[in-house]
């Protein structure tokens, strides 16, 4: 297994190099002069020259690329123009918030979507199945910004049960932290819950047709073992892949949700960086997000191999 993980890490390395190269080239790829864009329409030539100096745009691209990689090696991603502070610092502050939000949404996705899908398949063509399918259809069709607004109006304003927005640190107030995450977590998760419920239902239906499920029944295994052990572990093989994809979608979906609920996470940081043309921040954010996704994929691959012995076999 360690060999398998090492191999996957080595495969991830070129991906990260490519992503860092793309993010370093962003300023080259922007149409027009980024210095003019940043300084603004009414800026004087001196101001534009200053911005250019600050961004290092007066140096050749290759040289800037060299110092970008040297910076990455030192853990330095440059300074944010808007915030006037190191990019790494700003990101380090925001990443845990986004991870908490996405992690909570992932928990909801798996805790609701998987059991719903499994139960629907076991009770296929009954009212339970119909209810799950309807719920899943709603889940995948409702836009999350609209759902967010409705949840805020209902639970935040009319019922006043939960905060309508904002964020408190876990260390300051653990209960408040959970309360802050419930509405945004639900808004973010609903789409993924619907997708996961549908996919686990379809997979479970297929698995229940398999000969080994009949074997388990012929052995006299009780129902919980037939469904919860023999079938479930096989269902998890494709489902774990879907959960991996969900992780990526939850991270990118958090941009909208963080904005709606005023949560100070990576998504909002990057959204404001894009609007403010804060190129160093965009570059750094892109690199960190890509690294997180690559690590998530690695984790999924490892889980995949843990569940399905045939994958391990193929890797030897």
């Amino acid at each position: 297994m360690p060999e398998f993980i090492l191999r996957r890490l080595l495969i991830a390395l070129p991906v990260l190099l490519l992503v860092s190269l793309i993010s370093a080239s962003i300023m080259e790829l922007v149409p027009g002069d980024p210095a003019v864009l940043i300084a603004g329409q009414s800026a004087s030539d001196a101001e534009i020259a200053m911005v250019r100096e600050q961004l290092g745009l007066n140096r050749p691209f290759v040289e800037r690329l060299g110092s970008w990689y040297a910076g990455i090696a030192r853990g330095d991603l440059g300074d944010s123009i808007l915030l006037n502070r190191p990019v790494t610092q700003a990101i380090a502050e925001r990443v845990p918030v986004t991870l908490a939000l996405a992690g909570f949404a992932l928990f909801l996705t798996v805790a609701i979507g998987l059991p719903c899908g499994i139960i629907a398949a076991v009770r296929a063509n009954t009212w339970v199945d119909q209810a799950v399918l309807t719920f899943a259809l709603i889940g995948v069709s409702v836009p999350n910004f609209w759902l967010s607004l409705m949840l805020i109006v209902l639970f935040g304003v009319m019922l006043d049960w939960l905060p309508a927005g904002g964020y408190v640190m876990f260390a300051d107030d653990p209960v408040g932290w959970v309360r802050c995450l419930i509405l945004p977590g639900l808004s973010l998760a609903l789409l993924q819950v619907g997708l996961l419920a549908r996919i686990s239902r379809a997979t479970m239906l297929e698995v229940l047709q398999q000969d080994y499920v009949r074997t388990a029944r012929a052995k006299g295994m009780p129902m919980w073992s037939v469904y919860g052990k023999h079938a479930l572990k096989n269902v998890m093989v494709p489902v774990i892949t879907v959960i991996g994809i969900s992780c990526g979608l939850l991270l990118s979906g958090s941009v909208v949700i963080e904005t709606v609920y005023s949560i100070p996470g990576m998504g909002r940081l990057l959204a404001s960086a894009v609007f403010g043309r804060d190129y160093p921040m965009i570059q750094g954010g892109l690199l960190v997000t890509a690294a997180v996704l690559v690590l998530l994929n690695l984790l999924v691959d490892v889980l995949y191999a843990l569940i399905d012995p045939r994958v391990r076999y193929g890797q030897r």
């Binding site: 398999q210 000969d211 080994y212 074997t215 388990a216 096989n234 569940i307 399905d308 012995p309």
Partner: peptide, 11 residues
């Protein structure tokens, strides 16, 4: 059963 290839649980 007839099919030993699929009658055992692969995982």
């Amino acid at each position: 059963f007839q099919e030993p290839m699929t009658a055992l649980n692969p995982v």
